[in-house]
Amino acid sequence: MGYQDKGRTGATLYSEVTDRIIAQIEEGTLPWVRPWDDGRAALGLPRNAGTGRRYSGINVLILWSRLFEEGYGSQRWLTYAQAQAMGGNVRKGERGTTVCYADRFTPKEGDNAPTGPDGEPRQIAFLKRFTVFNIDQCDGLGDRAMAAVTTWNEALTLPVAQTLIEATGADIRIGGGEAYYAPQDDFIRVPRPEHFHEPINWYRTALHELGHWTGHRSRLNRLPDTGFGSPAYAREELVAEMASAFLCAELGIVPTVRHADYLGAWLSVLREDSKAIFRAASQASKAADYLLAFRAEENHETEEQQEEAA
């Protein structure tokens, strides 16, 4: 299916982003694992300052990359028009960041639209670009665009991660010397917490395996049929790696590389297909959202219990 991009070709957009990410990986810096501990950027996923909605997919990588390049201290972004609507403005001379929006439309009759086997018009996918600015580039927004302070205290963040992991209901078996997800029997194996040099790495590992767990046919139905060493397997590892990074950041845990031995395979996949990182980032966001929904359900159940107790 072809892609259209308002103003520039979709192929150009894919190539621009993919080439940038390939260069970052070759330099040893994964765009989904950056130096969060520099104390400037708050942990979390980037959000729109006007609506509060999380950005997803490739836009997370694009915005995180710009966040660290420029040393911004906020994960909040908005368009020029949004800044004005909120009573502020983008400072003169500030350079915006291009994000993209993917959607599909059905051409009208007579537009030489391609048709499917049933003769009906086929939907055409398109990419639309938007320019956004970090709130650090703006004046006059006041407190409306400010985000809640992110805690770095593991004593507070780890219980939140533990609650989410338990809320998924996943069959997690503790013990052994390896961490993996077994799709045939639908269970996760993770070594005992005390076997990790740092306790927080148990949670990073569990979240990575939960990323794979979301791909089961009964959930997001994403897992490949091929085994270890295949390009499809490498792509799935890339999805789980990014899903874990997105989850960690949102839960207040600094993301780290869990499977650096796949770097060569990931580079090969990205070089062969400029759309691969877009698809992987999209699937990673869907996996992260799937898991974060359990946190929302848990919070809702807790609120209902509190109301009943009252």
Rank of each mutant, 00 (worst) to 15 (best):
1 M>T: 03
6 K>S: 08
6 K>A: 15
7 G>I: 11
7 G>L: 04
8 R>C: 12
12 T>K: 15
14 Y>K: 08
15 S>C: 05
20 R>G: 01
27 E>H: 15
27 E>Y: 14
30 L>E: 13
35 P>T: 08
37 D>L: 03
39 G>W: 02
39 G>E: 09
40 R>T: 13
52 G>L: 10
52 G>H: 11
54 R>P: 04
61 L>T: 06
65 S>L: 10
70 E>N: 01
71 G>Q: 03
73 G>V: 01
74 S>D: 09
84 Q>A: 02
85 A>E: 13
88 G>T: 00
101 Y>L: 12
103 D>E: 12
110 G>N: 03
114 P>G: 00
116 G>K: 11
118 D>S: 02
120 E>G: 06
122 R>V: 03
122 R>F: 07
128 K>F: 06
130 F>Y: 14
135 I>V: 13
142 G>C: 00
150 T>R: 14
150 T>A: 15
155 A>R: 13
156 L>D: 12
161 A>Y: 08
162 Q>D: 15
164 L>V: 00
165 I>R: 00
166 E>A: 15
168 T>N: 05
168 T>I: 10
175 G>I: 02
176 G>L: 10
178 E>K: 14
179 A>M: 10
179 A>D: 03
185 D>M: 10
188 I>E: 01
190 V>T: 07
191 P>S: 02
192 R>H: 14
193 P>L: 04
196 F>Q: 00
198 E>A: 04
198 E>C: 02
204 R>I: 08
207 L>F: 04
207 L>K: 13
207 L>E: 05
210 L>P: 02
210 L>C: 04
220 L>C: 04
224 P>R: 00
225 D>K: 14
229 G>H: 08
230 S>K: 01
231 P>S: 01
239 V>G: 07
241 E>F: 01
245 A>S: 10
248 C>Q: 03
253 I>G: 01
255 P>V: 09
255 P>N: 00
259 H>A: 02
259 H>W: 09
260 A>W: 14
260 A>F: 05
266 W>V: 05
273 D>I: 05
279 R>S: 10
280 A>Y: 02
281 A>K: 06
294 F>A: 04
294 F>V: 07
295 R>H: 08
299 N>I: 13
